[in-house]
């Protein structure tokens, strides 16, 4: 285990490598999250979402609404489905950041830890993709979408969207990395400081 300063320098050194790998395999890395998001959307909101699939790095969602002369109607009435495209890289850049943090820590069994972390990131990325799709539907379709059964209030969608895009991709890798430091000298030092609470 190395000190936090060296750790952060190593993270910065590794980032160009992990980001380059991520650029090369961005579609592949987004796959599990896109599949999960699509599965949840198609199962939970079958009356709204017609299909959801990943095309390279774009998560493409067709919905059961259409637009006729600026008016939102059902897809059947419109004769077409509205299609939304979400850039999965807006969320998946958490993966190379997490990889750089983890691999610069010289932890035991880094591959196992990385695999566990990756599953956690895919899960949160899926929630993020759902939040983005819901935000798009709220803005484009509006009232007919919000009135559909099982749709959360607009304020909750807005908050989840902002959290998923603005905070989660950079914060979750740090939190995952922090929890995976368990048993290391840095973790022990932090724990001792927490136990010795000067404010108490």
């Amino acid at each position: 285990m190395i000190g936090l300063r060296q750790q952060l320098v190593m993270t910065l050194i590794l980032m160009p490598i992990t980001f380059a790998l991520w650029i090369a395999a961005a579609g592949l890395l987004a796959g599990p999250a896109a599949w999960l998001a699509g599965f949840i959307l198609e199962q939970m909101y079958a009356g709204i979402v017609a299909s959801a699939a990943l095309n390279d790095t774009l998560f493409i969602v067709s919905v059961e609404f259409g637009n006729v002369n600026g008016k939102i109607v059902t897809a059947t009435e419109a004769g077409h489905e509205l299609v939304f495209e979400v850039n999965t890289q807006l969320l998946s850049y958490s993966i190379p950041f997490y990889a750089a943090l983890l691999w610069s820590s010289k932890l035991q069994n880094p591959a196992n830890r990385f695999a566990l972390g990756l599953f956690a990131l895919w899960f949160t990325m899926a929630l993020g993709l759902i939040a983005i799709v819901m935000k798009d539907l709220m803005l484009v379709v509006g009232a007919p979408f919000l009135a559909a059964p099982g749709i959360p209030p607009g304020a909750a969608i807005a908050l989840l969207y902002q959290f998923s895009v603005l905070l989660a991709p950079t914060l979750l890798p740090v939190l995952l990395w922090l929890t995976q430091l368990q048993g290391t000298p840095l973790w022990t030092a932090l724990q001792q400081r927490l136990i010795r609470d000067p404010a108490a």
Partner: peptide, 21 residues
């Protein structure tokens, strides 16, 4: 804008927190 700076800003937060500790 979308990928590089958000990560650097979060690392900045970590550095500040480490200096605080």
């Amino acid at each position: 804008h979308l990928y590089f700076w958000p990560v650097l800003i979060m690392i900045d937060v970590l550095v500040v927190f480490a200096i605080y500790l």
